[in-house]
């Protein structure tokens, strides 16, 4: 293995560790909110051209519930929590004790979806900001239910001013006993990535 490869491998390990801790914290919060046990899969991290991100995540036309926010401050990064259609329905049923039609959510259900996104993303950020001792300033997240490609447009557009490829850090979570799944996606800017590596002693 060459020096460069070894270095790249180490960088990847650090980013994975970083995302695992964030996702772990968010999954714990989501677990207690949903009253069901969740576990995290390992984080995958990859560098992709913008055009391939949706395919990498399962296809542009898949219907998902996505919450997104963008971090300002030192650590510039987009961050999303994405639930497939079925998981979004079961989450909203659990929270609102009402019938859920994913194509026509009631105002309460929309609000619940946003709040869940807010809680997940905040717990993710609290955990990682403690670890690297940086204050993160998230805008309040917004949520929408739509096709994945469309949900990703704004997160990608916010990075696209500077780059043509994105670093995607992806952590899945799954219900242990019940069918429930989703993932966190972090899309850091290069400066944010450097800062993470620096603070984590790379």
């Amino acid at each position: 293995m060459s020096m460069a490869e070894e270095r790249a491998g180490k960088v990847l390990e650090i980013i994975k560790e970083f995302a695992n801790i964030g996702a772990g914290s968010a999954a714990t919060a989501l677990s207690s909110l949903l009253d069901l046990e969740l576990m995290n899969d390992t984080t995958t991290c990859t560098i992709l051209p913008m055009a391939r991100v949706a395919d990498w995540l399962g296809g542009a036309e898949k219907i998902v519930a996505g919450s997104y926010t963008y971090l300002c401050g030192d650590l510039k990064s987009g961050i999303l929590v994405v639930l497939p259609e079925e998981s979004a329905v079961s989450l909203l049923k659990h929270l609102t004790k009402d019938r859920v039609t994913i194509s026509a959510l009631t105002p309460i259900q929309k609000s619940a979806l946003k709040e869940v996104g807010n809680i997940c993303l905040c717990w993710y950020l609290i955990a990682v900001s403690k670890m690297i001792d940086i204050d993160m300033i998230p805008a309040p997240p917004d949520a929408t239910v739509d096709i994945l490609g469309a949900v990703l447009d704004v997160p990608l557009a916010s990075l696209a001013q500077k780059v043509d490829t994105v670093i995607a850090v992806h952590t899945c979570f799954k219900g242990i006993e019940k069918d429930f799944e989703g993932y966190f996606l972090m899309l850091p800017e290069e400066s944010a990535l450097k800062l993470i590596l620096e603070r984590m002693g790379a």
Binding site: D55, A60, E61, A150, D153, L156
Partner: peptide
Amino acid sequence: RNVGIAQLVLCKAPEQLTCLGLGSC
């Protein structure tokens, strides 16, 4: 053929193109 973000594709009959998942794009 699908035309992804930041891609440009030309075609002529009888070909077809798709553009999947347009949000703000």
